[in-house]
Design a protein around this nucleic acid. Structure first.
Length: 802
DNA sequence: CGAGTAGTGTAGATA
DNA sequence: ACACTACTCG
């Protein structure tokens, strides 16, 4: 175990509540962390404190978040507190950790080691393809609905057999679900829900595995607990409680959340999980973090007053030591356009020095709105005024069509049976393979029970020739890329797929080509950062009962850790591991890239309230506060919906540090019609004393009572791209980070490419290439019967053949 | 095969 | 109003 180390410096800058949370005993705990109360700080300090006081080794911690961004932040902060290799720790998103777990136990999970992950788009096209194949009426069963149904079932932990169908329609849906599962299994792909469900089932049904992880993870920490869905809750629970309800190995779950910031019920989040957690885990430690370090009290008072209108809260009241600050300013405008113009004007004042106060940076000003459509008029106003701005949202890097196309080619190299990818690019760029050829091919594949790729050889005629040429091209590429680096593979694929050439002739192709080039760079920095280590979790089952290796701690030395992290868990028996390509494809699916605004330019930030969650700004404008918009029309019918809207408003308000502006417009152009709106009911729930009305607080007139002419034309500036409008380069620097230097070390394995080697299971083979060093070194070996394999040299027993 | 067009829907969005 | 999808016609 770790010797005790003085942990007090860690606690120095914490307030009493935070300190109490950080130093709780090893038992389940719920931390109610209000907005701006230092939640992330508590989480990371808790981990650091547990380790420095010798209560847990780095390998004994699991910390779960929802977003990659949050996981990264946690690792970065932890890294600054302790000399520990955070990358090797089990800190990540639910799906990232599930992926790691399934790679390590792919055999038990009944998956191929290099299974690929379907994102939402991929899943939808897989479903469409399936429905077409089985002649399912898309009128009666829209693909999107089916997708929603399947994802929903998985989130509730239900396999097709377990779903109770109440009517014929449901029965049919369940059938489709069943077929979809079979298709995924056949093709070796999993969707996001499957990552969670399959790892949950493995933990539930395999006693040795469950016991191993229950003993291993002494401390489990969860961020944003209010956003967990049923399955995620069950997944957490299985680490602490056995399926029969008996207690597990006595680990502790440290859940941090804020029921007042629960805004994702629409995608399956259950705030109720917080109360369930307290009950089912017999939680005896609940701590509220109510001290806010972000905002002045006028802002906090508004937030507190608003949220107090919700029923059934766990109960929290934010407080601050800062003074009242500026009042919350409220503005009413006749039109949405006028609202936007006012906002631009107000911003100018904020940016310019005003009296004694220094001006704000534009990036410290945010404009929030309920729905994306509202950004347009604001963008126009900003554009016309020449104010740089940045819009969050939209397509992310790995979701762009050209990137998806390139990835599809790459997936086909890795797995020719990936029919989704096959169909995506079989005729892109166009190569004379039309719908009819593809239909024939699909029929042939179904008849033969094989993949589209394998069915090509059976086709004949002109269509067959084109298809044959396509498959040959892919197969040749696969051969050619065998011993190339990931970057070289991608470059070769970009050339030989014809993608680059195709986009060269397209109108807006230049940007797409740039993105494709960016993909190659992204791959390169991925290889550097990942280092391709192995993960010690892949223990043979008979070793599972042993506790994780404990290591000594010298405060001056980095904490020893399990060898590096993600994606690659070599098979315990053969040492077989993922190819860099397969690992990169996984990375692309799990991290579709940030939506972060470009760091370089000082620009005003535009985003929905949802995407503002977790962020903070000096000045915040919450716009479009009108009945029907915010709260939104569709939420207003039921109580639950309205309460979620209120929480959303609460999130919006608590983003502001110094200045908060609330605005609404009497009329608004929506769906091509001018709508007459009433100001939001939320204004009536704010404390009058904290507000300052910039326009007289007049009565509102009921919506359609005004049902006449529009009067306000929407003057839109020439759309085209100003230098700071939305552009596709938003994500650029995320992927172009400078390469991490690789330390040179003498190889200890003594292998070189070209060498003949012998493997106990795969027999004799030729080394094609070697990557990484030390424990992370991996070799690509071509075997006679077993084909090309990637082997982790620390695990695989390879002997040179003379 | 691909361009033009008719039809449809329109909240929020992580992995 | 507008964007996206699906379908028709050359």
């Amino acid at each position: 175990m770790f010797p005790e180390v003085d942990a007090s410096p860690l606690l120095q800058h914490l307030n009493p509540e935070q300190r109490a949370a950080v130093t709780l005993p090893n038992e389940h705990a719920l931390i109610l962390a209000g907005a701006g109360s230092g939640k992330t700080r508590v989480l990371t300090t808790r981990i650091a404190w547990l380790m420095t006081t010798g209560q847990v080794s780095p390998g004994g911690v699991m910390a779960v978040t929802f977003t990659n961004k949050a996981a990264k932040e946690m690792m970065t902060r932890l890294g600054t507190m302790l000399p520990v290799n955070v990358r090797g720790m089990w800190i990540g998103t639910f799906h990232g950790l599930c992926n790691r777990f399934l790679r390590a136990h792919y055999k038990l999970a009944n998956l191929p080691q290099s299974f690929q992950i379907l994102d939402t788009q991929d899943q939808l096209s897989a479903i469409k393809r399936l429905m077409k194949q089985f002649n399912i009426d898309e009128e009666r069963f829209p693909a999107k609905e089916t997708q929603w149904f399947i994802a929903g079932c998985k989130e509730d932990g239900l396999r097709p057999q377990a779903v109770t169908a109440r009517n014929e329609e449901d029965r049919r849906k369940v059938e489709i679900y069943q077929l979809y599962e079979e298709q995924c299994q056949r093709e070796g792909v999993v969707d996001f829900g499957e990552l969670m469900l399959r790892s949950y089932e493995l933990l539930r049904d395999n006693d040795p595995i469950r016991q191993h992880y229950q003993r291993r993870f002494r401390h489990i920490l969860i961020d944003e607990f209010q956003d967990t869905n049923r399955l995620q809750y069950a997944w957490i629970k299985i680490f602490a409680v056995n399926p029969d309800g008996s207690p597990g190995a006595g680990n502790s779950v440290f859940a941090v959340g804020d029921d007042d910031q629960s805004i994702y019920a629409f995608r399956g989040a259950r705030v109720g999980n917080m109360a369930d957690f307290v009950r089912e885990f017999d939680v005896r430690h609940q701590i509220k973090l109510e001290q806010n370090y972000r905002s002045y009290s006028n802002i906090l008072d508004s937030a507190n007053a608003l949220i107090s209108h919700n029923k059934g809260r766990l109960g929290k009241n934010l407080r601050t030591d800062q003074g009242p600050g500026e009042p919350v300013r409220v503005y009413e405008s006749p039109t949405d356009l006028a609202e936007a113009q006012w906002l631009v004007e107000e911003m100018r004042h904020l940016v310019r020095d005003q009296g004694t106060e220094p001006g704000l940076r534009r990036s410290e000003i945010a404009v929030l709105y309920r729905s994306n459509a509202q950004s347009r008029v604001i963008e126009t106003a900003l554009f016309n005024a020449g104010v740089p701005y940045r819009v969050y949202g939209g397509l992310r890097f790995f979701e762009r069509a050209e990137i998806k196309h390139a990835l599809a080619y790459l997936r086909l190299l890795e797995n020719p049976n990936d029919d989704t990818s096959f169909l995506r690019v079989v005729n892109f760029p166009p190569r004379g393979i039309g719908a009819r050829s593809i239909e024939q091919l699909q029929d042939a594949a179904r008849a033969a029970g094989c993949s589209l790729h394998d069915a090509v050889s059976a086709t004949t005629g002109k269509a067959g020739a084109n298809l044959g040429a396509f498959v040959a091209r892919i197969d040749v590429l696969r051969e050619q890329t065998l011993n190339l680096s990931l970057r070289e593979i991608i470059e070769l694929v970009l050339q030989h797929s014809g993608l680059v050439e195709h986009y060269r002739s397209e109108r807006e192709g230049a940007e797409r080509i740039e993105n494709l080039e960016e993909l190659a760079s992204a791959a390169e920095s991925f290889v550097m950062q990942e280092g391709f280590g192995r993960d010690a979790v892949a223990l043979p089952v008979d070793e599972l009962s042993q506790s994780p290796a404990s290591q000594g701690l010298d405060p001056n030395q980095p904490l020893l850790n399990e060898p590096a992290p993600d994606y690659v868990a070599p098979d315990a028996e053969t040492g077989e591991t993922l190819s860099p390509l397969a690992a990169f494809l996984t990375h692309a699916a799990l991290e579709s890239g940030d939506n972060q605004a470009q760091a370089g330019q000082d620009a005003v930030q535009l985003m929905t309230v949802h995407s503002a969650k977790g962020l903070e700004f000096d000045a915040v404008f919450v716009t479009g506060l009108e009945e029907g918009l915010f709260p939104s029309e569709r939420s207003m019918s039921d109580h639950e919906g309205l309460e979620e809207e209120r929480r959303l408003m609460y999130v919006a308000i608590t983003r502001a540090r110094k200045r908060l502006y609330l605005s609404y417009s009497q009329t608004r152009l929506l769906h091509g019609q001018t709508r007459y709106n009433v100001r939001s009911r939320f204004f009536d729930e704010l404390p009058e004393g904290a507000l300052k009305w910039l326009t007289p607080k007049n009565q509102n007139f009921g919506g359609s009572a005004f049902g006449f002419g529009t009067g306000y034309a929407s003057t839109r500036a020439g759309s085209g791209g100003g230098s700071w409008s939305r552009d596709s380069r938003d994500n650029r620097d995320t992927f172009a980070s400078p390469p991490v230097p690789v330390q040179k070390a003498a190889p200890s394995h003594g292998l070189k490419s070209g060498m003949q080697v012998f493997h106990t299971k795969f027999g004799e083979g030729t080394v094609l290439s070697i990557e990484g060093q030390g424990d992370d070194a991996r070799a690509q070996v071509k075997f006679g019967r077993h084909g090309v394999k990637w082997l982790a040299l620390a695990v695989a027993k390879l002997t040179p053949v003379p």
